[in-house]
């Protein structure tokens, strides 16, 4: 399975720039993108329209924006980490906020990394290259299975430990 990045981002501009950056960095596989939290959950659950696993493969990395309508990135993160299948998927919180509070919460909820969105485009490309080289090329992602449940409202309150 080729390694994919899932971009959970509501700003099209940011998507544009990141995509361009990743392409320039040599990413061969297309970036998967969802523009809000709920869609992210659906994607990861394999719910339609994301049930086609070839077109919508489970990602080896998720770049998660925080400021999104409907469901915030934190809620998505929380949901992800409570899943049995894809709980371990590496998540980089990718946001404009450099608030300490947000950083704390992100890590608390189980983010693997926290990156503040760069202002300049050149930085974007550097970042993309960096991310690709580390997280996709170097890092060995955990084995993943689609999430069992897909209801956005169902968010386990207590984390379940499961062998993934």
């Amino acid at each position: 399975m080729p390694r994919t990045i899932l971009l959970v981002e509501d700003s099209d501009d940011d998507v544009f720039f990141m995509t361009r950056a990743f392409t320039a960095a040599g990413l061969l596989t297309p970036l998967a993108r969802v523009d809000n939290g709920q869609k992210a959950i659906d994607y990861l659950s394999g719910k339609p329209p994301y049930d086609d696993h070839t077109r919508f493969p489970l990602p080896s990395l998720i770049l998660l924006d925080l400021k999104m309508p409907f469901l915030s990135g934190f809620e998505v993160l929380r949901w992800i980490r409570n899943q049995s299948g894809c709980a371990r998927v590496p998540v980089i919180v990718f946001t404009t906020s450099n608030q300490e509070r947000d950083v704390e919460t992100a890590y608390e909820l189980g983010a693997n990394a926290y990156v503040v969105k760069p202002d300049h485009i050149d930085e974007c490309s550097d970042l993309a290259a960096l991310i690709k080289r580390f997280w996709l090329d170097a890092n060995v992602p955990p084995p993943l299975k689609p999430a069992e449940t897909g209801a956005a409202t169902e968010i386990s309150r207590t984390p379940r430990t499961e062998n993934v």
């Binding site: 700003s11 501009d13 485009i121």
Partner: peptide, 17 residues
């Protein structure tokens, strides 16, 4: 400031592109 940064970034980004 924060919200300004979004469009700013977009502006700069597209301009760079």
């Amino acid at each position: 400031s924060h919200d300004m940064r979004g469009p700013l970034r977009a502006m700069q980004g597209y301009a760079s592109v």
